[in-house]
Amino acid sequence: MSDSQRQSDTIDENERRHELGSYLWGYGLALALTLVPFALVAWSGWPRVTLLWAIGGFALVQVVVHFRFFLHISLARQKREDLHLILFSTLILVLMVGGTLWIIFNLYGRMVPELLP
């Protein structure tokens, strides 16, 4: 085994611990972020709209947790094609989904009011 190989092994050691920690953290956080909304829906008795906001909030945070701890996407390093890709996709997704909801519910409002929530 060459010198450089050994050197990289020591770096690997840090990285390895870090990575294991990342999975554990991710699992723990995701678990918590799952349990809370389920518990809220089951037992809290909050008004529906508040509940929906809470569920949405927890879901968003959990998505970020998954990206960060399971898929190892972070904002830190410089050359991040995957990050750019995800952000661009999110932009397109927001345009498409947001636009769709805006348009369809507006149409419902003007033409079939009974389909409005």
Binding site: E81, D82, L85, I86, S89, I92, L93, M96, V97, T100, L101, I104, F105, Y108, E114, L115, L116, P117
Partner: peptide, 28 residues
Amino acid sequence: VFGFWVFMMSDLIIFGLLFANYVTQLDA
């Protein structure tokens, strides 16, 4: 991996649109 990321983002759009469609059909 980069190619697969791109594919998944394309797939993500499919799911996103089905989510949107689901929301519009909630009262149907």
